[in-house]
Design a protein around this nucleic acid. Sequence first.
DNA 1: TCCTTTCAGTTGCGATATGCAACCTAGTAG
DNA 2: CTACTAGGTTGCATATCGCAACTGAAAGGA
Lengths: 158, 158
Amino acid sequence: MSRAEQLREVFADCGIGAALEVVGERWSFLILRGAFNGLRHFEEFQTNLGIARNILSNRLGRLVEHGILQRDPDPADRRKVTYRLTEKGRDLLPVLLSLRQWGERWISGHPSNPVLVDRYTRQPIAPMTVQSADGRPLSLRDMEWVDRDELDRETRAA
Amino acid sequence: MSRAEQLREVFADCGIGAALEVVGERWSFLILRGAFNGLRHFEEFQTNLGIARNILSNRLGRLVEHGILQRDPDPADRRKVTYRLTEKGRDLLPVLLSLRQWGERWISGHPSNPVLVDRYTRQPIAPMTVQSADGRPLSLRDMEWVDRDELDRETRAA
DNA sequence: TCCTTTCAGTTGCGATATGCAACCTAGTAG
DNA sequence: CTACTAGGTTGCATATCGCAACTGAAAGGA
């Protein structure tokens, strides 16, 4: 197996690697953040993020290719194009929020604006945490990495 | 406030941008994944990830600079250097897991190996979800972005 | 002691990716 | 008909990346 093939294997077999192939480029997360916050048009992304136009064009194209955004021409004004999140894109919210909360806690040091709240109670959402199958919060001390086949064997043994 | 003004406000200050400055480069997440899985030494990272040595050197240095990894010479073998996660680094686990679960669901299509389990129940951890302050799972329909000052005003009014 | 191997990098160089400004085309507004 | 807008594309300079080769200090073995 060539080195390039090995490398591809690393990316392919790990969910993180697979995800990063699609959303791991420099501006992708910021574009997605924009989309979650209501940006829809090319010029909106460009002026709000300050990203170069060719890069923005490329990134939007990639995100559309990968089914994270969908691209629709505006029937009312045929110059305009609307980019909106698909379900696959919306499902990245936990990633964005985890990253945001970490940045708030460890880098910027204060909560960002705007705040994401429960629409009905008006309470800000909870911090993202790792939980057990039955919903208890877990810290790293409570967890362990186990080989999948090993775990299968344990399960069958029990 | 106009829509354009709202949007500008949205991006003035956000934890995601801050976080990406530190961990947004190409290999950073995969190096952290390795660290969470027990990789500790330069050669381990290099052979396991297939990353170029100069890039690895640069990324490790950056992560150490930002206090995400700590670098300790091994007293028993003075050639060796140990890299381990700090608390700041360990606190990135929700980000890594969200990303991994998304990649498993939408890209690779199957769970990655190894699996992170509750040490005592041997159950795999739950999917990362966005929850309300009192622990109910929330979907995007149940949430709303609110300006912080606006929310303060609401709260005082109530 | 001398020779070999290991570990953690660094260096040189070509290939990619990124950023900037200018330009382009279709469509809209007056 | 002219001006302007939305959404790009093109050319070119710079920055980052990936690979292979090299370095230097520290074991390990005969």
